[in-house]
Nucleic acid binder design. Structure first.
Length: 662
RNA sequence: AGCGAGGUGGGGUAGUCAGGAUAUCCCGGCGGGCUCAUAACCCGUAGAUCGAUGGUUCAAAUCCAUCCCUCGCUACCA
């Protein structure tokens, strides 16, 4: 009991939008880790909370006609509820805008000031006179001074890609309201981050967690550390001590939330928060790969500067992709936890399994409904679920439950081995490998039953058949205990089906190695339902529709001048002949009378029109389109049609072929 | 541009840090078995110049160098 206490945190969800798979990629593994560690007998505190400050929340709140606090509370409750539904259970889920965090942040900033780590400097900053607020770079748009392209405040993102210093951008405009922005000078406060370089290097060399976090941060530090501007001109946030017009930057008070939430928890639980933050600790941060910088560099420097203990481990997850595309809300590549998943009656445990079993924690995780269904059906349902089911069904029918006696040493040895392997992987944050090892034990169970064929044995040697089922039940017992951190609900169901009446989470993982229960069991039924194909297609279609909608919305339509438009020669034409193009199932070859001449045109409308119904139709033709060879057939123009089903554009009243269209 | 991650049979994915003799697992192909089980399970089999080139070594997917390709990050965005 001399090991320092283990405190696990998750990166804080920002309260301006709902929970999606990107969030869960961090929270589910953290929860599984906590569940596992607890069930090895460790005392673990698991805290998190919502991140409420910053300009984006003020902007979102204004747009929604509510206060930032109301906005934050709405999403705070949303995340709290969603995490519970996903089986992610924190000991405390706080808010960074609550008094505890205001107090802790103020105290830490004051300590930093007292220790000389903060200095002031005048900063040149964009200000919107209409919104009456200073604009962070992401809210400024303008013209790049280097190449003249339109650019964001901090970078010429569409042109030359150069980094822009504040104040450099030409014709700055407020992104929120479109008003011309101006630059104003304002006194701000900076944290002497550059002074911590020599402290941070050895810290990072020794910090535990995943290699991606560590390497990334070390690489960065070796480059150059700039001091951090830690104040913002904003009303919403934690006031900078002694300055009513400034709040601290959210990246100061957000991580300090970890401490404040521990304090709030300790208050409830009658514990001492200092045990976790002032001295030796095992504070373990689970974070997304996008905030490594803040947790590996800024945060330890802040803690060290203020005289607190620094993190023990930083565990960073890899990226999430959806349908092999970069996760993107605006492009539609997103899966919402409630709307798309839980509200459709899908089990939280399936998603937990997928997120944990897909790949290493630090690698890119691709989500697609097809892959999801495949993994669930093949691994969870077929291998794991089927093993438990066949064992219990057979036991129930032939032996009225689980036969008495102990399990064979070979079976116990297999369980021992699996437990040891899983333990190593869990402690290394290698969740996929741990899940693989558990599934391998289930596969072992299937091979074992298959090889010993109790359904045959029962006819010749009833006792031997009973022993096979007894052994299989021991494996099922171990599997339930091992899978609990991954699929807590299903593990409990499995546990109950094995005839236990208590809570599986109250048992140690090591109980897998103890003789399992024998005797009567409740009527067995399949543990897992398959993902049915129609359901998968429906879910997949939903995602694709969202991507298409997003596509349509974001499509940038360039403005065309009258001169440019007049370059097009569009005329009425009459179809003289029409036939399918050889070896193509989409193309039609048409000859169209356009008044002055007859034109051969190839059009992709075979699925929508029969050749004979085209003949004689009056159509609209772009006649001066550059000729092209399609499928070896020359095409001299384009027949206009609308929509995906190529609804033909036709003149409402009869016109002569060749009539100009404008 | 810099930094980081990755390129492994048809698809996906492990192994690379601590080099080793038949390169993992899931799906798919082919052949067989079982019939307790949710058409689930088991066995066998085909299929990989482990991105390219060069090097170190008795031995390289694994170490080194160069190159090619993909993706992410670049701090006053949360």
């Amino acid at each position: 009991m001399s090991a320092p206490p283990l405190l696990v945190t998750c990166g804080l969800p920002y309260t301006n939008g709902p929970c999606h798979l990107g969030h869960l990629r961090t929270y589910v593994p953290a929860d599984a880790y906590v569940r596992y560690m607890r069930r090895t007998g460790e005392e673990v505190v698991f805290v998190c909370g919502s991140d409420n400050h910053g300009t984006p929340i003020v902007v979102s709140a204004e747009a929604a006609g509510v206060t930032p606090r109301q906005m934050s509370e709405k999403y705070h409750e949303h995340f709290d509820r969603t995490f519970r539904r996903m089986g992610v259970v924190f000991d405390h889920f706080g808010m960074t805008d609550n008094p505890a965090n205001h107090a802790r942040t103020t105290a830490i900033v004051k300590q930093l000031i007292a220790r000389g780590h903060i200095y002031s400097q005048v900063v040149h900053q964009a200000y919107c006179t209409k919104c009456r607020r200073f604009l962070p770079d992401r809210y400024v748009e303008g013209i790049c001074p280097h190449c003249g392209a339109s650019a964001r405040g901090d970078e010429c993102d569409q042109g030359c890609g150069k980094h822009l210093e504040p104040g450099e951008i030409k014709e700055p405009v407020c992104k929120v309201c479109g008003t011309k922005a101006e630059f104003r000078d304002q006194e701000h406060f900076f944290f002497r981050l550059s002074a911590f370089k020599t402290y941070l290097l050895p810290f990072l060399e020794s910090v535990r967690g995943t290699a991606n976090a560590k390497n990334y941060a070390i690489g960065w530090i070796k480059e150059e550390l700039h001091d951090w501007c830690i104040t913002r001109t904003l009303d919403w946030g934690v006031k900078f001590p002694g300055r009513d017009d400034l709040v601290v930057y959210v990246w100061v008070d957000a991580p300090i939330g970890y401490i404040a939430f521990t304090e709030e928890w300790a208050e409830k639980a009658g514990r001492d928060w200092k045990r976790y933050w002032c001295g030796d600790n095992r504070v373990t941060h689970f974070i997304g790969g996008d905030i490594i910088y803040h947790h590996c560099i800024f945060w330890p420097a802040l803690l060290h500067g203020a005289g607190y203990g620094v993190p023990h481990a930083i565990v960073a997850s890899g990226m999430l992709k959806v349908d092999d595309h970069k996760f993107s809300k605006s492009r539609g590549y997103v899966v919402w936890t409630n709307e798309d998943y839980l509200d459709r009656g899908l089990p939280a445990d399936y998603l937990r399994y997928y997120l944990l079993a897909y790949t290493s924690h630090t690698k890119e995780l691709n989500f697609s409904w097809k892959l999801f269904a495949e993994r669930i059906n093949n691994e969870v349902v077929n291998i794991f679920g089927n093993f438990v089911n066949r064992t219990l069904q057979f036991g129930q029918r032939e032996f009225n439950g689980i036969p008495e006696g102990g399990a064979d040493p070979a079976i116990m040895a297999e369980i021992d081995k699996t437990c040891a392997v899983v333990d190593g992987f869990m402690r290394d944050y290698e969740f996929k490998s741990a899940v693989d090892a558990i599934l391998a034990l289930a596969a072992y169970g299937n091979t074992y039953i298959q090889g010993n064929a109790p359904w045959k044995l029962v006819k010749t040697d009833r006792a031997a058949a009973a022993q096979v089922i007894r052994n299989a039940a021991q494996l099922a017992h171990a599997l339930a205990l091992l899978i609990e951190p991954v699929m807590p609900e299903k593990a409990q169901e499995c546990w109950t089906m094995l005839g236990y009446s208590d809570r599986i989470a109250d048992h140690r993982i090591s109980d897998a190695k103890k003789p399992s229960r024998t005797g009567a069991i409740p009527p067995p039924r399949p543990l897992f339902a398959r993902m049915e194909e129609e359901k998968v297609i429906e879910l997949d279609e939903l995602l694709h529709k969202r991507v298409r909608d997003a596509d349509r919305k974001s499509e940038k339509i360039p403005v065309v001048s009258l001169e440019e438009f007049q370059k097009l020669d569009i005329r009425a034409g009459r179809v003289l002949s029409c036939e399918p193009v050889n070896k193509s199932n989409k193309l039609l070859k048409l000859v169209v009378d356009i008044g002055t001449e007859k034109r051969q045109i190839v059009a992709g409308m075979q699925q929508f029109y029969k050749p004979e119904e085209m003949i004689g139709k009056d159509v609209v033709v772009v006649t001066n389109l550059a000729p092209a060879k399609i499928f070896g057939v020359e095409s001299n123009g384009m027949i206009l049609a609308a929509g995906d089903a190529a609804s033909l554009l036709v003149p409402l009243r009869p016109v002569e072929p060749g009539s100009k269209i404008r």
